[in-house]
Design a binder for these strands. Structure first.
Lengths: 227, 227
DNA sequence: GATACATATATTGTCGACATAATTAATCAC
DNA sequence: GTGATTAATTATGTCGACAATATATGTATC
């Protein structure tokens, strides 16, 4: 699965491992949204003490996958339409900025790599038509690369470490796939082209549209589930 | 001092207290930039065990005041020109967005309150001409109100909880005051007027300019120190 | 039967101690 | 004297247990 981001932090601690496991469990819906998190129970389940577990919980709160109340415990975050809207409002803006900065700061080599990545996605997509999971990963891969290309450490931290698990949670639990998949590839192509042309303004615009389209797609899915 | 933000979390824990103390110490420069953080030493200093201290350190990392390396410990963050640039690049964008959203979502009452706040600042500023600290707090107060007015919880979290301590650190340690103070008030006035007129686009633009001006001011200060 | 209060239970926050890893000090080779 | 290697020391990661707080249960009252 996706590491926080090309993290230099080599030594992997017990807290890291349990963090990844719980992250995956929440994103995939194995831990029900809104359900209470019991520290003693999780400690038993993952066979470690509460100290590293609490470290993991602190980081889960940081990426908005759980909500903690002092002395009262933590709960798995609940998906909501307003939450989705707020999240994507922010994403449009931040990833737009990331594109603008990427157009300024990405090296030619990095751009070439992203293009190769897209070609690779296209071929693998043709093979596994409709396979939602790999598309999901591929899409995030593209966004990751662009975000890293911004070279703004705070922006990278917010998008890759703090917001993306939530984004994935919405996508995974709402079962995103369908016809938007192929269109998304075209939009990715257009974005990297704008970046390659060092046209930050256009790259910004295209990314905002790309994310807005994705948001509408998810909103639709949410409404569908509501009825 | 400034609480994380109008936090509903009533119960104040030992970790909260030590967090605030260390936050203040780092922002004010009482803990030297780049200096190592010793858990045993701090635990002794604040007379508590390492458990709540580590909780506090986790949150300090979250607001970028310290940098941790697994198994190697934490260090107080170092100010740098590139860091300042990255931070303000992000701020321009995010607070611009906050303004746009505030123009949509702030109630008339909230707008009135902010205006009263500005009048209050103006009078108190005339009394204590050049008093940097109160201006500092007042400026942040204005920005806080606007950010809260955006009603976007993720945006609020990022700006008020994760980025603002760093902003304050740059300002406090570089001794921001001087002639920009009075101009900043005018800019605040213009921004809240745009919000009151429900002109999100203009409010966005004005806030970006306001922050860009602030950035140039700080950059100047940094260069001055470099020579 | 519903509400308010008191009790009992369980959970979180905190503590002190140990295991492991990193840093420093010391030793040795050249 | 300098560099590398090893030992000593310190710090971080983890553990199990206790204290304070919140939740759940039961009891009494209206």
């Amino acid at each position: 699965m996706y590491q926080p981001h090309p993290a230099l932090r080599k030594p992997i601690t017990a807290a890291d491992r349990v963090l990844q496991e719980i992250q995956r469990a929440i994103v995939d819906g194995d831990m029900a949204a809104g359900s209470k998190i019991s520290e003693p129970e999780l400690a038993r389940r993952f066979d470690l003490s509460r100290a590293p577990l609490r470290e993991a919980l602190a980081r889960l709160e940081r990426c908005h996958l759980i909500e903690r109340i002092p002395n009262a415990g933590a709960r798995v975050v609940k998906l909501s339409t307003t939450g989705l809207l707020a999240l994507y409002q922010l994403r449009e803006n931040l990833e737009g900025l990331a594109c603008k900065l990427a157009a300024e700061h990405m090296s030619d080599d990095e751009i070439t790599e992203v293009r190769q990545l897209l070609d690779q996605h296209l071929s693998s997509q043709r093979v596994r038509e409709g396979e939602s999971y790999y598309q999901e990963a591929g899409d995030l891969d593209f966004h990751y690369r662009v975000i890293l290309g911004s070279k703004n450490s705070y922006l990278i931290n917010i998008l890759c470490d703090e917001l993306y698990y939530l984004v994935r949670m919405y996508r995974v639990q709402l079962g995103m796939n369908g016809p938007r998949v192929s269109r998304a590839f075209d939009e990715h192509k257009a974005i990297i082209t704008a970046i390659a042309n060092r046209d930050g303004e256009l790259a910004d615009l295209l990314m905002r549209r790309h994310i807005a389209a994705s948001r509408r797609n998810i909103e639709l899915q949410l409404e569908q589930m509501g009825t």
